[in-house]
Design a protein around this nucleic acid. Sequence first.
DNA 1: CGCAAACTCAACCAAATGGTTGACGATTCA
DNA 2: TGAATCGTCAACCATTTGGTTGAGTTTGCG
Lengths: 112, 112
Amino acid sequence: MTDAILDRAFSALADPTRRHLLTALLESDQTVVDLAAPFAMSLTAVSKHIGILIEAGLITQYREGRDRWCALNPAAMHEAFRWMQEFGYSLDQADETFEAELLELGLIDPET
Amino acid sequence: MTDAILDRAFSALADPTRRHLLTALLESDQTVVDLAAPFAMSLTAVSKHIGILIEAGLITQYREGRDRWCALNPAAMHEAFRWMQEFGYSLDQADETFEAELLELGLIDPET
DNA sequence: CGCAAACTCAACCAAATGGTTGACGATTCA
DNA sequence: TGAATCGTCAACCATTTGGTTGAGTTTGCG
C-alpha cells in the first residue's frame, strides 16, 4: 500500500525530464505549454511526463480556460523523503566517500 | 553528470524489492544468499537487484571466501536526499494533504 | 578427490517506459 | 464564423526492466 506510493514517487523522480519539470515548478505554477518549451521533445511527450508526476502525487493541475496550470504537490515528495530519512547515515561521512566514488566512476575530473 | 547519479539512485529506489534489501541491510551486513532468502524469486533475480544497487552507489560488496557480503553505502542516498531537500515544502502541510490524497486514491480506509 | 554451496553469466521472455505522429476537442480571438 | 492555440488521446515503435532457466566458476568440506 505504502509500497505503491513509494514505487510511483521514486520512479517518477528517476527521470531527468521530470526532475527538471519539478524544479521549474519550484519557481512558480506554469502551464503545460510553458513547461514544455525548454525541452527538445514533443508536447505530447511532456504531457505524458506531467501525467506521470500527477499519478505519483508530485504535482497537481487546475484548469483556467484552455490552459492547464501545474503546481507542486508536497505530499508524495514528503513520503519519499521520509522513507529515506530512515537511513540515519552520517552526512559527513557521505560527503567524503561520495567524491571518491565519483572519481572512481570517472564522472568527475580529479582537479574539480 | 549529476543527472546520471540521480537517475540511477532514484530508479534503484523505485523497486520495492530493492527497498526491502536496503532496509534489511539497515540491520547489518548480509550475504547475497541471506538477503535473497525472504523473497519468492530466484537467487539470480536478487543478485541482479543487488547489482543495480551497487551500480547506483547505494550499497557496496566485499568478498569473504565464497560469500559476498553486502553493506549500505550512504553516498548515493545522500545525493538523492540532498536533491529532494531543495523542495522546501512545509512538512506540516504535507502531512495534512497526504492523508486526504490517500483517501481519494482509495489506498487507505477512512477509519485508519 | 568429489560433491555441495554460493554465486555470476548468458540467453531468453513478457511487460513497462519513453518517445513519435496524426487526429481530435475545447477555448480564444480577429 | 473561422482560424489558431492549448492541450489530450490512440496507435505505434524501440529500448529497458524484471523475471526465468540452465550452465559455469570458485570456494568449503567430508
